[in-house]
Amino acid sequence: MGDIGALSSFLVSAVGLAVPLVLAALGETVSERAGVINIGLEGSVIWGALGGALGALAAGPYAGLAAGALAGGMAALLFAVFAVWLNTNQIITGTAVTIGSLGFTGAVFQSRFGVTGLALELPTVPAWEVPLLSRIPALGPAFFDQAVTVYLAYALVPVLGWFLFRSRWGLVLRAVGESPDAAHASGVPVARTRMLAVVFAGLMAGVAGAHLSLVHTGTFAENMSAGKGFIAIAVVVLGRWSPKGVVAAALFFGGAEALQFALQAVDADLPYPLFLALPYVLSLAALAGWFGRARAPEGLALPWPR
């Protein structure tokens, strides 16, 4: 295999690992811009993975994607009912949703496929080759010969960028996140806006989970979300609450993970835990402001009305 071939398959790995993070983090960006941090995102991802698997087995991979999105959205709705409507503590509620989701999805999986499990072979979402672009050496196969979920991620970056920073609705949403009292005073329905933002993030995390089971691995296992929902939250911080930044941060995380596998495969003596920790260390650095100003929405994680 030539250098271009090796680089190309490395990029395929990096993009494969990054896309679930991109999808979940883009959704979470909208939610956090509206002032809600949803630690239950991890729960939405695992529900998306299981919903995707069950939907795909019942009615094909595209139905699976829809079912995954819906399942992730439902988990987020549960979170929103408590954290937004009933004003419970966002962190505690999100943690409960995540733990409960990991348990419930496991119970569903075991009751459907046997307690000791089996390696499902799921119908996967086919890749669509973009004419011409997919022929670009090295970059083509990784970026332009992918499943619809990947193109969805591409499309959402400019769309969400426009929505958040150029549209009236985006302004309203950010007002809710920065200063819910002021937004309320000017007649914005704060709770409803936050609910919608959280459910949108849940739908996206559901697609991320369905991508895991139906695009990336073609199988399902309990706990297969493996912290991706949590990492997505770190990605939002590293990407400084902007869609463009979030994509760059997610690609960095995916690339770092793919790189450490590539390095380990060449030289077994590398201290692999250091590589596993690297992305988190950088997130901390980003929070500490080493990569420029990182400011969270003013009203983030605060209950409203107080």
Binding site: S13, G16, T217, A221, M224, F261, Q264
Partner: peptide, 19 residues
């Protein structure tokens, strides 16, 4: 030899094997 740092991380195992 590759270690992925987890026993359940399906996508990491997939990519480690791919590498």
């Amino acid at each position: 030899e590759t270690f992925i740092g987890s026993w359940d991380n399906v996508s990491a195992a997939k990519e480690a094997a791919a590498a």
